[in-house]
Design a protein around this nucleic acid. Structure first.
Lengths: 252, 252
DNA sequence: GTGTTTATCGTCAGGCAGACGACTATGATC
DNA sequence: GATCATAGTCGTCTGCCTGACGATAAACAC
């Protein structure tokens, strides 16, 4: 079938963001409250239209900056200027996913360190970090006893896919450090893994694994006691991006 | 930024297909010759517009059937009716990727057993299985000494991403069986791995690994000598989709 | 000081992979 | 028909990695 540029069905193209972070030992995602129909008042993933002259990655980085102030890492760039990891997740294009018109959404996944507090266009009540378990449970009740409405559109599916991608990706890459501040301890990194996977890991074996993988962690020389207990060495993320052999999640 | 459905930039949305197979010990991809500008006469990946009432996966399955006659597996379906594995790969939306207009392409990856011969709309000269090495080498010369033009659009990038996805995915899933006919031997499966990874594997260790992984292979009871030598047991793909522990590629 | 918390080092056994020897059962060749 | 080449299958051995877990170290709270 050759192209016929004059007779293509028009689509709207958006980017939606799964922005994950670890807060208080829980994996959390950024959610914004919808101010207009459809799904008015419901929580949704942040996102917006791709502009006419914009690349998809640019659009995602722009939305991320608008929602969180974070600069996305250029995947080519070596060190991090306190930014977030950003990658394309998947594309969702069911004809009925938006009741108004045909919208294809290119979802992106962002991993960010713990941030002070979200502000969606300056209005804090319309954006929050919510534990992904809470956002994904259907028709249940949140921690405060309020009934929880499911996410708007197909965003529960998108969030679920993003969480699974993150869970899988920290197995064989050093991406878990994207959840940490610039300097962090082995214990803090372990708590990231525990929060993302929802399991408890043996501190001794974890320490052996991450410090024994060349290029994963670089000691800065400093120590901290911010977690209590014996002072812990501080590290920065090393240059290695792939973990070989990987750190596999424990079996259920 | 709330949606403004009346003022979105219009996009064309296409699906492009990376259809991989193993032929004569080489990883090959399906390529079609473009019959019209831009890139007239150059090779490209098969693809086409997503229709107004079509899901992305449906559009990809339709294009795959049009180009190869293959039925795509429903990922939910258990057994294979001699079909191909089909999954979404990534989405490419650079504003300049198509000189005519703004086109966002949702690339899909298909893995197929060795097929007789491709026919793009009945014209065999406009479709072929080409070794991916040949399609990806820039400005070189093919096996027949003819100069090789690079693929049209950004299709080299898409093909490259698809190949890397396939190489990575057969490590930790049983997807390599998608390259095999319904019944196959351990040696045939090993040759698939060798072709996709471009390495030589130890037959004895490979045999131990794949026959020792529960659910990977199911013996059919039959044997064959189609590869010469001692008769080999025939297997079908088992129910397992994930390989745990994975079969990692050898280091370079 | 005693207890608690967290970090870090060590030990040991089991599992798995790479290297490779040995044997088996076909078809091809002389 | 004996010999050879080819491909398949079973074993062995060694080294690496992981999970389980003991032990020690260095801070803080009381």
């Amino acid at each position: 079938m050759p192209y016929d540029p004059s007779a293509f069905p028009p689509f709207a193209v958006t980017v939606d963001l799964v922005v994950l972070t670890v807060r208080r030992h829980a994996l959390c995602a950024l959610a914004v409250r919808r101010g207009e129909p459809p799904f008015q008042g419901r929580w949704a993933l942040p996102g917006g239209f791709v502009r006419a002259d914009e690349d998809l990655a640019q659009a995602a980085a722009r939305e991320l900056a608008e929602e969180t102030g974070l600069q996305a890492h250029d995947p080519g760039a070596p060190a991090q200027d306190y930014g977030a990891h950003l990658e394309q997740l998947a594309t969702y294009g069911d004809p009925d996913r938006d009741p108004r018109m045909r919208v294809v959404s290119v979802a992106h996944l962002a991993l960010a360190p713990d941030l002070p507090a979200p502000t969606a266009g300056g209005d804090a009540s319309n954006a929050r970090w919510a534990p992904v378990d809470e956002l994904l449970q259907q028709g249940g009740y949140g921690r405060d006893g309020e009934p929880v409405a499911p996410l708007a559109f197909d965003h529960a599916r998108i969030l679920s896919d993003g969480v699974e991608r993150a869970r899988s990706k920290i197995e064989y890459s050093s991406l878990a450090t994207a959840f940490c501040p610039a300097e962090f301890t082995v214990g803090e990194l372990r708590r990231v893994y525990e929060a993302v996977w929802g399991v408890a890991l043996d501190p001794r074996n974890f320490h052996r694994k991450v410090t024994g993988t060349p290029g994963f962690l670089v000691p800065t020389g400093g120590t901290t006691t911010r977690q209590g207990g014996r002072p812990a060495q501080l590290f920065r993320a090393g240059g290695a991006t792939l973990l070989n052999p990987p750190m596999l999640r424990p079996e259920v």
